[in-house]
Amino acid sequence: MNFEQFLQYIFSGITNGSIYALTALGFTLVFNATQIINFSQGQMVMLGGMTAIAFHGAGVPLWACFLGAVIVVVVISMGLEHVAVRPLLSKGVLAQIIATVGASFVFETAAMIIWGRQALALPAFSGERPIGVAGATVVPQTLWVVGLTVVIVVALQIFYRRSLFGKAVRACAVNPSAARLQGISYRKVVLFSFALSGAISAAAGVMITPISFMSYSSGALLGLKGFAAATLGGLGNPVGAVAGGFVLGIVEALGVGVVSAGYKDAIAFVILLLVLFIRPVGLLGARVVTRQ
């Protein structure tokens, strides 16, 4: 592998890594508020992409497709919380997790009925003309993906560190009953976490569709990659989720270069297994893994 090729793989790794990072963030937000691993997270990403495609097909400008997809998936995610998660609160976390697995099948089947089985595309946000960088090339969409990911991550940090409600959400992750004693509505925080997680997933789905297409079944793999990234970074740690996403994307891309493209997806799961065997708390250590 020469340097240009290496750089090319890195670019591709960062692009996919951004999507994994955002999906992992989606997992983390819901997990921190509820201790639930939302196994329909990948389907949220898929629904984001598919909804944007549908809007675009109806002649809506791209930026409005993006916004529309985010809104639709936020509503779906809040619906999921209302229909499948909240009623099972007294049944425990495991029942809720299984409900999200069920929801993933519902989303996937619904998407298949609505959009069919073929992979669909969305035009790139600002053209397809590649830009040369040190002998490698980057499509403009990659810059959009990475740029918007950075914007989202920074905005989230500001929200969690600076705003009172952001601090309240963090407090709920640490100790929900103490948070309630401060007058923080735990229900609102959970609902909000699902909404935010849906918004971020949808954004990821819309951004990646112009690069790698989207079909009704794309969600499962995206979800598992996102989960691997979240675990890699230490489940419950938002910074770790983002770092895990980028590490996973880059390692995967380099693996494609060194080994073979056929093993691309296997690499993620080898990493996931290694993390679980060797360092179950993740690379950055989990802030919240179990709650006292």
């Binding site: 407090a171 100790n175 103490a178 004693l181």
Partner: peptide, 10 residues
């Protein structure tokens, strides 16, 4: 509450 129940990481 008993045992203070602070938000430790905050």
């Amino acid at each position: 509450p008993e045992g203070r129940q602070l938000f430790g990481p905050l």
